[in-house]
Amino acid sequence: MTIAINQLSKEFDGFQALKKIDLQVRDEEFIAILGPSGCGKTTLLRLLAGFLSPSEGEIVIGNATVGNLQQTLPPERRNIGMVFQSFALWPHLNVEEHIRFPLMHHRFVSDAIKRKQHDRIKEVLQMIDLEAFADRMPNELSGGQKQRVALARAIAPQPELLLMDEPLSNLDAELRMEMRSEIQTLHQLTKATIVYVTHDQGEALAMADRIVVMNQGEIEQIGTPSQIYSKPISPFVARFVGKANLVEGDWNDNYFTPSLSPTTQWPDTGVVSEMKQRNIYPVRPEQFRMSADNQDESGLPGLINSVQFQGKEIHYTVQISNQTWTVHTDVSQQFSLGEQVYLHLFVPHNMEQKNLNHQAI
């Protein structure tokens, strides 16, 4: 199911929650809408579901215009499934009854599924690995099992569009990791188009085909997880996805000079033109290397003011002049709170060679 969102805006009592959003979603694509609280991502999802009407623009799902200023199709007239943050299970229905309910009432259920309702229920129970729990009531299930039931209810009628509103936010860290894999598997099995709202960059990077990063009712960037993480086009995206340090300075051809060290030159490792125009070099925490000395005189001096052990790596905050930067190192390299260190930009060998070749030309 394709989606076309054209110049979509939504206003609440004078507050502009969405500002002329344009987005095209391909058939069977997994799209993550990523952003902080209040950025408009849930408003966008509610507009797609039909719970809200646009103030401007239009929404086209498949070949039908389902929402514009003149009319809005209600949710029951859209071939969608919805998974909520709160699970939204009915306390008086068991697991099997939760799956049967949409098969009986969803208007887009095919005749083949209606004729073989029991087979479809069995198939969905197998998908979510809850065959042994078919008779269980919601209060007899764990958090992860409840979320599987919510997913099963949504996919049972085979909707062409699946909308998910932060479905993993109420689960603990280990369950969230497990459910990421299960949602990916369900996507492959159902072939549904998925629009997935989250504030968790890890979820978006791990599962989505493309990520839409939103901020203050607008789209900041759309791209693959690799593009969003490695080539942010705005300071907001750089900070929000990957927690990049935004180093200010001057770009000159393919080299950057940090303002804090006029004698230092960093090669271009693929920084996009939008960041160069702002005279910013985004450096992710793992792109810095730290040393206790400055033998090659290329390091920026700093003072460690925070150390957080994270198992396979250590997270540091380092005071550089009047700025605080974040640095991640593996556990083989350890420094102490208050220690004087030097920060160096890590440049892959092939990138160094590329810049040398460019310089020779």
Rank of each mutant, 00 (worst) to 15 (best):
E274D: 06
T42D: 05
N294Y: 08
R239M: 11
E178Q: 10
D129Q: 13
W325T: 01
Q188C: 15
N279C: 10
P262E: 14
G338C: 10
I59A: 02
I228C: 01
F346P: 06
A134W: 09
N322M: 08
V83W: 08
P74R: 08
R289I: 15
Q221H: 02
R148C: 00
A192I: 12
V83N: 08
E203G: 05
P54T: 06
S291Y: 10
L141W: 01
L34M: 02
R284H: 14
A17T: 04
R115P: 14
E218R: 08
L303E: 14
V95T: 02
G40M: 02
H315M: 12
V283H: 07
V347M: 07
Q85C: 01
N357K: 11
I222R: 03
D253R: 06
S273C: 05
N63S: 15
G242A: 10
T329S: 15
S259Y: 05
L345V: 02
H344S: 11
T324E: 13
I121E: 03
I99D: 04
S321L: 11
V237Y: 00
T198W: 04
K354A: 11
M177C: 03
F30W: 10
I211T: 02
T264G: 08
C39H: 02
G67Y: 07
Y281Q: 03
Q16L: 09
L73R: 12
E313L: 13
P262C: 13
P262N: 10
M214F: 00
R78S: 10
H328R: 15
V83L: 07
R289K: 14
Q216I: 00
I99P: 11
T190V: 13
I194R: 05
L23R: 07
G302D: 12
I33Q: 00
R148S: 04
E352F: 08
Q353L: 11
I3T: 10
Q201P: 01
T257F: 15
V307T: 06
F309E: 13
Q126F: 05
I211L: 02
G40V: 06
V195I: 14
T65E: 07
L162S: 14
V124I: 15
A17N: 07
K122C: 10
H98Q: 09
N357D: 07
S110A: 12
Y229F: 04
L161R: 14
E352W: 07
I59K: 05
K116T: 13
L356E: 14
Q265W: 15
H315N: 12
F133I: 00
R180T: 01
P74A: 09
R120F: 12
V212C: 05
N68T: 00
E123Q: 11
